[in-house]
Computed example of a mutant assay.
Amino acid sequence: MPAVEFRDIVKRYGPLTVLEHLNLRIEDGEFVVLLGPSGCGKTTLLNLLAGLLDPSGGEIRIGDRDVTHLDPKDRGLAMVFQSYALYPTKTVRGNLKFGLSARKLSRDEIDRRIAWAAKLLQIEPLLDRKPAQLSGGQRQRVAIGRALVKQVGVFLFDEPLSNLDAKLRTEMRIEIKKLHGQLRNTVVYVTHDQVEAMTMATRIAVMDQGVIQQVGTPDEIYDRPENIFVADFVGSPAMNFVDCALQAEADGLAAVDGRSGLSFGLDDYPWRRPPEPGRPVTIGFRPEHLRPPNGAEGRHLRLDLPVGHSEKSGSDVVLFLSLPQRMIAAKLDAAAAEPLRRQERASLALPLDRIAVFDTASGQRL
């Protein structure tokens, strides 16, 4: 399957710059998710790849072809839209057939492709129904089937699950991932839903304000965010942040919060550049890394903080603990959290090998 490459892509609308000198390579057979908030440029980038928009600068390549100015039909792509975009007057079979008839394929070849896609997506009993007679999940399967029958190397998905309820979204995530495992096509998938990105992607490109903030596997994005934006956007609840200053103490370097008195020991921190005492830094740590202190192993920081409120979600409980001028979240299993919910203060341990240090001014990981 072909690779996809964006080289120095720029997209402007008059004085408004939507994408600024963007570079990204998607290897053949990868499932890459473009993840970011509304307005970050991810759908614009997908539409540039599809040929629905023209770039203001740069080059788009699919395999060894420069497709920057090719018509959509000549790019070897298939796209699944958020709105399904099915023809209401045609049956499922007619919707699957529509894009093939223009290619002047034989009737036998068209029937073979429709039968193959219908079996793969388990929509064989639906072929003679019209879209109004289908559920949301069935319509989305038909939309995917219409892309599959084209038998191209690159599939584009533009937030295809956002119109489905929570249960159907889970089911369709599994189905799309399973399809990719079977077909090994190159997939470029746009979403603002971090759960979709983390569960489906082989790599994620996190975008903000037209700039790719980080590209990596789901584990890399989650465990080693490159900057405060990525750390804050990926994760639910979001990462906790505490503004500190680097200080040289008797037992080594630490990040100290002058308002709360918290001191994060950094002797074993894997610095990317030499630390500078006095530098303002932001300490980040995930809510799930806070645990009851009993049995805590390795170097850790003991926190004893007032309990603000709590939220229970199934087997998990999120405790919100008070620091001066901010709250931090701790995500615990219900059994561990239950006694703490009834107390005024909670004692928790934070492993110091799970913290991230960011430069407060630039937001970049140190």
Rank of each mutant, 00 (worst) to 15 (best):
H192G: 06
T44Y: 04
R291F: 11
Q194M: 10
V92K: 00
A132C: 14
E124C: 13
N163H: 03
Q122W: 10
D223Y: 12
D353P: 08
I283V: 12
V152E: 01
P306L: 06
G210T: 02
A337F: 03
L127S: 11
I60L: 07
L164H: 06
F6V: 04
V242Y: 06
E171M: 09
V307C: 09
D232Q: 15
P280Q: 10
A115N: 15
R146M: 09
N240D: 12
E249S: 12
P125D: 12
L52Y: 12
K130M: 11
A78D: 00
Q122H: 15
L290K: 03
I228K: 10
V318D: 15
G136Y: 04
G39W: 01
A335Q: 14
Q140N: 10
G57I: 04
L253D: 01
N163W: 00
K177R: 06
P125Y: 05
D193K: 12
F241Y: 14
A85H: 08
G99L: 01
V92C: 01
L301V: 04
E5F: 01
A231G: 05
G278A: 07
P2E: 11
M1Y: 10
L70T: 05
F155W: 08
S83F: 15
P306C: 06
R259I: 02
P293S: 03
E20T: 02
H300F: 13
Q214A: 09
G58T: 03
V32R: 14
D243F: 15
M198I: 08
L45G: 12
A231F: 01
K97I: 04
L105S: 05
D316V: 12
A166C: 04
W116H: 15
L16S: 11
W271A: 02
L352M: 06
E249L: 09
W116L: 15
L121F: 14
V211N: 10
L305W: 08
Q133V: 11
L100A: 01
E226G: 15
M172K: 04
H180C: 08
S310I: 14
K312D: 15
Q122I: 11
I174P: 13
N163G: 14
A349Q: 09
R75F: 03
S135E: 05
S310H: 13
A78W: 00
V206P: 03
R93Q: 07
R184D: 15
L16N: 14
S38A: 08
R354F: 14
V154E: 04
P270W: 02
H289D: 11
F358K: 03
F233Y: 13
A356H: 14
L290Q: 06
R203C: 10
K150M: 13
F264E: 13
I221L: 00
T360M: 12
F264K: 12
I221M: 01
Q343M: 05
R291E: 10
A346E: 06
D359C: 10
D71M: 12
L70D: 11
D66I: 07
D268L: 09
R341A: 12
P306M: 06
D28A: 03
R75D: 02
H300S: 06
L96R: 00
Q343H: 06
I212W: 08
L16K: 14
D128H: 07
A205C: 10
I221F: 01
A85P: 04
R129G: 10
